[in-house]
Design a binder for these strands. Structure first.
Lengths: 118, 118
DNA sequence: ATAACATATGAACAGTTGCTCATATGTTTG
DNA sequence: CAAACATATGAGCAACTGTTCATATGTTAT
């Protein structure tokens, strides 16, 4: 924040600063995975699913009815959430119950809420 | 988590649980805003921009060179970040410097990193 | 085994997104 | 003022996303 100078004349950046920033960047794969994770949170349907799972584990048709959406749509989205390891599931007879995988979900959503509430 | 019963027979959900979940849901607008916020984090380019701004404020062409992308692409994405209030900017002559708007950005990205690192 | 129920999945299609390219706006200098 | 530089922006397009629809899979009860 303190270090700064004439960076952009003739389209040449300030060498030292650029180098130090480059060193502190996570590797490409981590950045990709991170974006993929947030992409999963970046959909209203999936956010709503995660919210209803805050309360209790629920089966697919419960969630579908709660969100007033088709079983198929919910099932597709649950798959996305599961692949991102945000939810897990267990089968009980014909029924499959989904539940939050861990507390990161609550924390991340909570931080997001903090931001939008200024 | 304790309360549960036969929800889905005949496609009828468990009334009490469904009602209590419904009560605790944030309003539609908040959920939409939240998804919109995470959508902004859900892109590699924007994540990388935020990361380079962790170190120091930078001008558009600095960022473009750091990420090896066009000035136009970066400028478009900075607009998205600005609209989401994740970055702010200040002009100094011809140059516009961008910087992180507040510490929520670091916190949210940090929580995301925690999750992907298991 | 057959029917009924709960869930999963593939294809298709409309809507969205992120880039490029061209060009516009804003600022400083000669 | 014109030229040069830094940034912003609109149009266009290829790639991606989320839904629906039809159907498949898995489980239970008869």
């Amino acid at each position: 924040m303190e270090v700064r100078a004439e960076y952009c004349e003739e389209h040449h950046v300030h060498k030292d600063l650029v180098d130090s920033v480059k060193l502190d960047m996570p590797d490409e794969e981590s950045l990709y995975d991170l974006a993929e994770l947030f992409k999963v949170f970046g959909d209203t349907t999936r956010i709503r699913i995660l919210y209803v799972l805050f309360e209790s584990e629920l089966c697919v048709c419960d969630i579908a009815e709660l969100l007033n959406m088709s079983q198929s749509a919910i099932s597709h989205q649950l798959r996305v959430l599961k692949q991102a390891k945000l939810v897990r599931s267990r089968r009980e007879g014909k029924t499959v119950f989904y539940f939050l995988a861990d507390d990161h979900v609550r924390t991340i959503i909570g931080q997001g809420m903090d931001h939008i509430n200024e």
